[in-house]
Amino acid sequence: MTTSNPTTPLSGGGTPSTGTNVSRRANRRQLSKFWIYVLLLVAGLAFGLPFFWTISSSLKPITELFVFPPTVWPENIRWQNYADVFTIAPFALFIWNTVIVTSLAMIGQILSAAVVAFGFTRFRFPGREPLFVLVLSTLMLPWQVTVVPQFLLFRYLGWINTFAPLIVPSFFGGGAFYIFMLRQFFLTIPRDLDEAAKLDGASSFRIFWNIMLPLSKAALATVAIFSFIGHWNEFFGPLIYLNSPDKFTISIGLRYFVSNPFESDEPREAILMAASLITAAPVLMLFFAAQKYFVQGIATTGLKG
């Protein structure tokens, strides 16, 4: 995504034509530019202000929370709200649990999606095309259809209230979305490279490990980022599989925080805002650090899907 992109109709791209039209058209273009900035600003405020309000509320002392009219920025900033998040609930433990689940599931997804994508790109076998269509069609399968028997299966295995149901399935295929994304990428890597390696007697595993993976760092990073966010934000799985607070991940921990009164009856909105921001922070920071991968990753999937 470069800055020198072609413009679309609203700003009137294209070469200026000859004649008296030119100045009038330039004028019109200036005007529409103005309205574009106005619209961008309005939309920007609509998306940005709720975040600002949340940050502001998270720093308010209880006394300032319910005054009317509300203060835009706290008169007395109370940083203590952020510390309280960790003392009122075992939030550090929730974060730790989430780190474990997220990292293991992420490793599983990257590895197995890469393995499967490699199989689909570098080998010819009967049924390859229909099987790949089947992979893609699972993208459109709502998880609700399989959730009850899956729950019963994991219950039978004794996996309820463990992290296993949240991690183990990631190692089996890693999800259609990621297989598709990596396959698209692998297809762009010239076959000559593996042919040459094959002539030198390299096994497919070596080709996969020493040629494909190192050349696919950007694509793997994209998968890693999406996988991280997916698991960090996951709600439904932890909700049905984890039932004791010491096992909670951050999503259901946060909900537990809302629905369970702890020692005092004091309003906890400020602390809740702080807790929500702490929950969202890793994902938001990751986004700022790796914006490029996001945009490329999503765009590839949408355009070639």
């Binding site: 199989g119 689909f120 190692f171 089996f172």
Partner: peptide, 15 residues
């Protein structure tokens, strides 16, 4: 072909 099936087997089993 056999090798191909082997590589995609994690997905097949998972599916």
């Amino acid at each position: 072909a056999l090798e191909g099936y082997l590589w995609i087997s994690p997905w097949v089993i998972g599916f």
